[in-house]
């Protein structure tokens, strides 16, 4: 399911111009990270994808649906949105009921709901906690419960808002694993993030926003190598990219694997 955004502009009631003409195409199955400084318009942009915000002018089309013609609850069948703070949505007596809430709202048949909930709980490693009260979980696992409750809705597009902020390394690994599984299942994943290393490891395409406009848009390695331009929106390239540049290597480096390959190419052959 493609996302087509045409000349999107958004002005808050306070008069703040948050988005100043954004045009984008995100194809089905793409893994996109959106980066940029605070106030660049990242959250404002993705809140248009499921109708939480409506364009001041321009349009956002999800598949064949114009977001202005459908309610948020209807768009929820196509776009899942994982919010930053799990405590601002959890309310059920146990994890199982919580995760089933979304798919139930979408009106799926009960067998389908059961299957989706089971899969989402397995992906988020919560299968053993079905009867636990969500608020008895640690904050890290509450985050996973909120994640499961969105994944269980089985939407073709999933949005993550700052998924790794405040999470420990183990949970970042779990979240990366969920994103990889979603990719395998052919889902479009869009993530807002400050965590450039996370972005370099898990995404194919990066969009850098600055002051309500697209600053850079392209494959992850190319975008993250543009150190000078990224500096305008206060984004530092990943540590390994910077190290590669410092070493004077011409090829852009994104992931650990790429760094190791580049390094091994340069190792003097043992005689």
């Amino acid at each position: 399911m493609n996302i087509t955004i045409q000349d999107l502009r958004f002005t808050y009631p306070t008069g703040l111009d948050a988005l100043k003409g954004i045009s984008l195409n995100i194809k089905s199955g793409e893994q996109v990270a959106i980066v940029g400084q605070n106030g660049a318009g990242k959250t404002t942009l993705v809140r248009h994808f499921n109708g939480l915000l409506q364009p001041t002018s321009g349009s956002v089309i999800i598949g064949d649906w114009d977001t202005q013609k459908h309610t948020v609850a209807k768009l929820a069948s196509r776009v899942g949105y994982v919010f930053q703070n799990p405590d601002e949505q959890l309310f059920s007596k146990d994890v199982l009921t919580e995760v089933a809430f979304g798919p139930k709202n979408l009106g799926y048949a009960s067998e389908k709901i059961n299957a989706l909930v089971k899969r989402a709980l397995a992906l988020t490693e919560l299968s053993a906690e079905t009867e636990t009260n969500p608020y008895d979980l640690s904050p890290a696992w509450r985050k996973m419960a909120a994640l499961a409750s969105t994944i269980a809705m089985d939407t073709p597009i999933v949005i993550f808002d700052e998924p790794t902020t405040g999470q420990d390394a183990a949970n970042v690994g779990r979240i990366a694993n969920v994103i990889a599984e979603l990719k395998k299942a052919g889902k479009t994943v869009i993530t807002i993030t400050h965590d450039i290393d996370f972005c370099a490891e898990n995404f194919e395409r990066v969009i850098a926003l600055s002051k309500g406009q697209v600053l850079l848009d392209g494959p992850v390695r190319e975008v993250l190598a543009q150190e000078e331009i990224l500096a305008q929106t206060y984004v530092d390239p990943p540590q390994l990219t910077r190290l590669g540049k410092r070493l004077g290597w011409p090829e852009p480096i994104g992931t650990q694997q790429e760094f190791l390959q580049a390094l091994s190419r340069r190792q003097p052959k043992q005689a």
């Binding site: 007596k93 009260n133 608020y135 008895d136």
Partner: peptide
Amino acid sequence: LKALPARF
């Protein structure tokens, strides 16, 4: 009160 976790 029913939904409050055992911890609380």
